[in-house]
């Protein structure tokens, strides 16, 4: 009874959910319908969906976005995991400043960052060359708030200090302690951070388009001007992929994972 007393149950609830379901599923249904239409209006075609692989421009963009997701996740984990563990173990004085910095991108819209990053990126391009993959640096900033919350949640649920003292007293160095003792214990947080980062990167449009790079979303918009069917198919595919990703995560991490529902100031719209 405990959980049921706040909200309605039974047919009242079902009745209340109907208009919401209609509002949210109608556009999704429309996308499925729209993307499989033939021009003559007769029958169905999967050409729009086939183009996701057959069209070299889209296929290249998908590969770029997947590459960006992989690089961003790697960079984010390399930057965040050791830092956050170290703060818990040896530098608690830095807790507030690290948290503040990690959550700061929620307050500074991506649109602002892309306006201001020109000078920094002149250097990045000079060092790493002209490639869309260089966006993974700034994407790491975008995913920071989500990743921070996920990893912080996992770290809070274990006793990092005792675990590491045990490891250290048995002769393990700091590297071994972090990599082989702490990390395996915060695996669910790392997984959440990675999944959410992938979803953010695959949906990112603002920075890529204004910095002049062709990632998946930028190409979808370009193609949408001439071939609505393919653009709609690609859009629906992105949404479905994101949904599968988050649902998998929710099942994998079980229980009352807070990481699935960070209070977000959204990363991808901004």
């Amino acid at each position: 009874m405990s959980a049921t007393s706040t909200g309605p149950t039974g047919w009242k609830r079902a009745l209340g959910l109907v208009p919401f379901a209609a509002f949210f599923f109608l556009p999704l249904y429309a996308m499925a319908d729209f993307s499989t239409r033939t021009i003559q209006g007769l029958g169905r075609t999967l050409n729009g969906w086939r183009n996701l692989i057959a069209d070299p421009q889209i296929y290249a963009a998908i590969l770029t976005s997947l590459g960006l997701a992989a690089l961003t996740v790697t960079l984010m984990l390399m930057l965040l995991v050791p830092t956050m563990i170290w703060v818990r173990l040896r530098a608690p004085w830095a807790t507030r400043i690290i948290e503040f910095l990690c959550l700061l991108p929620l307050t500074i819209p991506a649109l602002v960052i892309v306006v201001g990053m020109r000078d920094v990126y002149l250097w990045v391009v000079w060092i790493f060359g002209e490639s869309a993959l260089t966006l993974s640096f700034v994407y790491t900033i975008l995913v920071l708030p989500y990743a921070y919350r996920a990893i912080d949640g996992a770290l809070s649920s274990i006793d990092v200090k005792t675990l590491s003292e045990a490891a250290r007293s048995l002769g393990a160095g700091w590297g071994t302690t972090i990599a082989r003792i702490v990390v395996p214990n915060i695996w669910s947080g790392i997984l959440s951070a990675a999944f959410i980062s992938i979803a953010v990167v695959l949906g990112e449009y603002t920075i890529a388009s204004l910095a002049g790079y062709q990632n998946l979303q930028v190409v979808i918009v370009t193609i949408g001007k001439a071939d609505g069917m393919t653009a709609v198919a690609a859009s629906l595919a992105t949404l479905l992929f994101g949904f599968v990703l988050l649902l998998t995560l929710s099942v994998l991490t079980r229980g009352r994972s807070q990481t699935l529902t960070p209070e977000p100031l959204d990363g991808s719209h901004s």
Binding site: A199, V200, G203, E204, Y205, I220, S235, L236, F243, S268
Partner: peptide, 22 residues
């Protein structure tokens, strides 16, 4: 909650096309 997360946080461009299709 998974649907809500996707639509709220990662929709972006896709939502524009959802309404163009509708």
């Amino acid at each position: 909650t998974s649907i809500c997360s996707v639509l709220a946080q990662f929709g972006g461009v896709a939502l524009a096309f959802a309404f163009i299709a509708t």
